[in-house]
Design a protein around this nucleic acid. Structure first.
Lengths: 221, 221
DNA sequence: ATCTTGGGAGAATGGTATTCTCCCACGAGT
DNA sequence: ACTCGTGGGAGAATACCATTCTCCCAAGAT
C-alpha cells in the first residue's frame, strides 16, 4: 500500500509504457511462433515437429522460444486452445441458428465429430490427436482448453432443458461434458482402417444416435 | 515339396525339439520382462519407465530385450493386452451372471469404468493411460488389444438385443464399441481435480445413465 | 579339442528438448 | 559522440532415452 502511494503516477505510467511495449513485442513474437508451428503442422500433416523447426521457420532463436513458452507443450496447448476456440465459435454459430434445441445439438455433434476426425488434410486436422497426448501430462490445461467448446454444448443443452427436451434426471452441463468428450474421442478412435469383420469407421450420425438416445429401450433401475 | 520329403522325420523332430526349447526359453524371458515392467509401473504409479529400468530389474540385457520385443511399444502393448484381457474376463464373469441383459450391461459398464480410472493405487491402474498414447502410433494393435473387452460388451449387447431390449435401429456390435470406448475415455478424462465450478468427477452411474439412455427425451428426425 | 553361436555387458549413436555461454547491436544516459 | 547495460540472436553444451553395435565368453555341437 505505502509503496503504491509512494510511487507517483508518472512512474507507474512510465513503467506501464515500457511494459506495454514489451508486451506488444512479446505478443508479436508469440504469434510468429504459433504461425510457424501451424504452417509446419499443415505441411507435414502431423504434430510431431521439433522445436528447432519452429524456431528456424519463424526466423527467431531457441532462446527466444523458451523465453516465451515454458516448453514445447505450452506451444501445443496454445495451438490446441486456439483451434478449439475457433471451432467452438463456428459450431455455436451453426447450432444456435436452429430453432429446435435438439436439432441444434445434432448439428453441434455432427460438426464436432467431423472436425475431430484425424484427417490429415483439413485445416483443423490433428488438433485432437495431441489432445489425448496432453490430457495425461497436463490435464488441467487441457480441461481449460476444452472450456469454450464445453460452453457451447452446455448452452445448447440448457436450451434443450429449458424446452423440456432432456431426460429429467440429467444435469445439463455434465451431459454436455460427456457428449463433447465422447464425440471427440469416438472420432479419434474411429479413424483406423477396419481390419476385417465390420469395417469399423463410425459415422457422425451413429454417434449422434448413441449420444442422444443411448442404447437401452427401457430404463434400468 | 521335394525338400519336405527329402527331410526325414528325425530331422523335423530334431528341429522341432530345438525350436521348442528356444520357444520355451523365449517365453520365460518375455515373461520376466513383463513382470519387471509390471512391478515398476506399480511402484512408481506411472507408465513412463525407461527400457533400461526394465532390463536392470529383470536381470537381463538390453540386447536380449530388443531380441524379444520390437521396441518399448511392444512391451507396453503386451502389458496393455494382458491387463485388458484379464479385466474383460472378470467383467464377463460378473455381467453374464445377471439374468437381465441390461442389468448385466450396467454391471459391465460400472466395472469397466472403475478399472479405467487412472487411480495410482490399484493393480489395474494406468493401463488405460497409455492406451491413448499408443492409439495414435499403433492404432491397429490397440484395436486388437481392445478386442476381448469389445467381445464381452458385444455379447451382452447381443443378449439384450435378443431380448428386445435395444433401440431397434442399433447394430449391437457398434453400440458395444461406442459404449466401451466412451466409458474408458470418460473414466480417463474425469480423473482430474475439478478446478472450481462443478467439481467435475463423473461417477460410474452417471456414465451408465448416459450410455444407456442418452440425453434426449424424444427422437430427433 | 576346436568350432559355433546365443546372449551378457555396456559403449556408441541418434534424435530431441532444454539450458547455457558468448557476444553484439542498440538505445539511454553523460 | 562515447560509454554502458541489456535484450536477444546463434548455436554449442547438456540431459535423456530409445535403439544399435561391438566385444567377448561360455556351453553345446562336431
Amino acid at each position: 500500500m505505502s509503496t503504491l502511494s509512494e510511487e507517483p503516477a508518472w512512474k507507474q505510467r512510465a513503467v506501464e509504457r515500457s511494459t506495454k511495449a514489451a508486451r506488444l513485442r512479446a505478443e508479436r513474437k508469440v504469434q510468429q511462433f504459433l504461425e510457424a508451428a501451424q504452417e509446419i503442422i499443415l505441411e507435414k500433416g502431423s504434430t510431431d515437429f521439433t522445436v528447432q523447426e519452429v524456431v528456424d521457420r519463424s526466423r527467431q532463436s531457441l532462446r527466444s522460444f523458451y523465453q516465451h513458452f515454458g516448453g514445447k507443450h505450452e506451444l501445443l496447448l496454445a495451438l490446441f486452445e486456439n483451434a478449439l476456440r475457433r471451432s467452438a465459435d463456428e459450431i455455436r454459430a451453426a447450432a444456435s441458428a436452429e430453432p429446435d434445441p435438439l436439432v441444434g445439438l445434432r448439428v453441434a455433434v455432427r460438426m464436432l465429430f467431423e472436425t475431430s476426425l484425424p484427417d490429415p488434410s483439413t485445416q483443423h486436422p490433428l488438433f485432437t490427436d495431441f489432445a489425448t497426448q496432453l490430457l495425461m501430462s497436463y490435464p488441467t490445461e487441457v480441461r481449460s482448453a476444452h472450456e469454450p467448446m464445453l460452453a457451447v454444448f452446455a448452452e445448447m443443452m440448457a436450451r434443450a432443458d429449458a424446452a423440456g427436451q432432456l431426460r429429467s434426471a440429467l444435469r445439463p452441463r455434465r451431459a454436455a461434458a460427456m457428449v463433447m468428450q465422447s464425440v471427440m474421442f469416438l472420432a479419434q478412435s474411429t479413424a483406423v482402417a477396419g481390419e476385417g469383420e465390420s469395417a469399423h469407421p463410425l459415422t457422425a450420425d451413429e454417434v449422434w444416435e448413441f449420444c442422444a438416445g443411448g442404447f437401452a429401450l427401457r430404463d434400468v433401475a
